[in-house]
Structure formats: structure tokens, C-alpha cells
């Protein structure tokens, strides 16, 4: 048991630090999931079988997936720049956090130097789940009912917050097309990536006839994420030479 605790404790602290230090929100979420899994195991190790299970299902399964879902919705570009904008915030925050941890350990680190164990309590109603159920629907019934109200309220609130009032008539393909031609900025289709490029992968910008890249041809999310592949300049020259050089000799030749 001791061995398991140390392994899991180390892993969960690593997970926490990973969440804290990751530049990208997705990575943070994954690190946090690791910590939560470790905690679930630690719950089970402390005879809280039901809570361990709920931890996995509710936290790791539902809450963390909700986080990832929201991250997907608002875009992967939501990466922090690590430059601190409030002067003096970072060192003071680290200091305060360390002080908090130290005081907390000092306060509760040796508060419970005994352990009664849950064998008796779990066995009373024939198991951990039964014991919890007896408490929840007994002593804590009103609180339990209140959580039901809380959850419904939260669901309703989330619905209202996420709801977007339609202020303008819905734009179908036809109206969008008319709008595009009316503005006259770029009436036609945008260039697709990979055209005249060495690769026709989606992260390679299209090339114009003079060999320069068209940034607009890369899909927005890729541009935001910064995963646009650079064009190899020498290779482009080579291709151009081969294409334009040959065309220069037979004048007006069809390409």
C-alpha cells in the first residue's frame, strides 16, 4: 500500500505541475485527467470504492470531456503566451502558493495521526455503496434533494448562457454568395492549399505563378495553431525553373 501511495502521489503531483506548466490548454486538460485518475485510485485505496468510481465517471469522463469540448469550440488557438502581463505577479504568486502549501501542510499535515478504518462502517449495511446510500437518503436527504435543484438550475443557466439570440435573418448559401459579389473584394473561390506546391497537403500554402505563397489558402484553425508548413525556397526555385524555363523556349505554349 505504501508503495502504491508513493507512486500515485508522485504521479498526481506531476500531473498537477504539468497542468500548471503546459503552454497549451489541451495539454493541461490531459495532465489534469492524469491527476484525477490517480486520485480515483487513491480513493479506492482508502476504502471509498463508490467515490473512486464516481471520480472516474464524473470527473475524468464527464467534466474533463466537457473541458475538452469547450476547448474545441473556442479554438485551439487559446494558448497562453507565457509572458506575464501584470508586473510582479509571477514571483509573488509563486511565493504565495508555496507559502500556502507550507502552511497547509503545517496545519493539517499531522492532524490525523490515527486511523480507525472503514471496515466497520462499510460492513454495517453490507458494503460501501449501501452505507453511503443509507446516509444520503437518510441523514443527508434534504441536501441531496437540494443538489438536484442545483443541478437543474445549473443546466438551465448553461442553456440560457449558451443560447444565442438570432439578431439577423439566417444567411443561406445564396445570400452569402450575393453578398460576396456585391462587396467585390474576393468574389470567387479562395485558392485551395497545395496548389502549385510541392506537396498537396492541407498545411502547405498555395503558390502564385511568381512563386510566392498565398497565406489565405491555409484553413484558419491551422493558421491559428501555427502549424503552417514553410515552403522550401530552393525547391520552389527548381520547380519554377523547370516549369517557366521550358515554357520560355516554345513561346505561347500551353501549360
Amino acid at each position: 500500500m505504501t508503495f502504491l501511495f508513493w507512486i500515485l502521489a508522485t504521479l498526481s503531483v506531476i500531473g498537477g505541475l504539468g497542468m500548471l506548466l503546459s503552454r497549451k490548454a489541451v495539454h493541461s486538460a490531459l495532465w489534469l485527467a492524469l491527476t484525477m485518475m490517480c486520485l480515483a485510485v487513491l480513493y479506492v485505496a482508502q476504502s471509498a470504492v463508490f467515490l473512486g468510481t464516481v471520480q472516474v465517471i464524473v470527473y475524468t469522463g464527464a467534466v474533463m470531456m466537457l473541458f475538452l469540448f469547450v476547448l474545441m469550440l473556442i479554438g485551439v488557438s487559446a494558448a497562453d503566451s507565457l509572458r506575464e502581463s501584470i508586473r510582479g505577479q509571477r514571483p509573488v504568486a509563486v511565493l504565495v502558493a508555496v507559502a500556502l502549501g507550507a502552511t497547509l501542510i503545517a496545519a493539517v499535515g499531522n492532524a490525523l495521526d490515527f486511523s480507525v478504518g472503514l471496515q466497520a462502517a462499510n460492513a454495517e449495511y453490507g458494503g460501501n455503496v449501501q452505507g453511503l446510500a443509507a446516509l444520503m437518503f437518510g441523514r443527508y436527504l434534504i441536501a441531496f434533494e437540494a443538489t438536484a435543484a442545483l443541478l437543474i438550475t445549473a443546466a438551465l443557466g448553461a442553456t440560457i448562457l449558451a443560447h444565442r439570440e438570432r439578431l439577423f435573418p439566417r444567411q443561406d448559401q445564396r445570400t452569402r454568395s450575393v453578398e460576396r459579389f456585391r462587396s467585390g473584394v474576393h468574389p470567387g473561390q479562395r485558392p485551395s492549399p497545395g496548389v502549385y506546391a510541392r506537396h498537396n497537403a492541407v498545411d502547405v500554402p498555395a503558390l502564385l505563378p511568381d512563386g510566392s505563397a498565398v497565406p489565405d489558402s491555409i484553413p484558419g484553425p491551422l493558421r491559428a495553431r501555427g502549424t503552417v508548413r514553410e515552403i522550401d525556397a530552393t525547391a520552389t526555385e527548381e520547380v519554377l525553373d523547370r516549369l517557366v524555363g521550358g515554357a520560355a523556349s516554345d513561346t505561347g505554349g500551353e501549360r
Binding site: 505577479q89 504568486a93 503545517a106 496545519a107
Partner: peptide, 21 residues
């Protein structure tokens, strides 16, 4: 900045905790 405010909050909590200790 909400982070500045929370920094003050946490620092205050630390001080109270330390005082109690």
C-alpha cells in the same frame, strides 16, 4: 485584473492561516 485580486485573497488567507497556527 482578477488574478491580482485573487493573489491578494490567497495571500490574506495564508496570513490568517499562519496567524492561527
Amino acid at each position: 485584473f482578477v488574478r491580482s485580486y485573487s493573489l491578494a485573497l490567497v495571500a490574506g488567507a495564508v496570513i490568517v492561516l499562519a496567524a492561527l497556527l
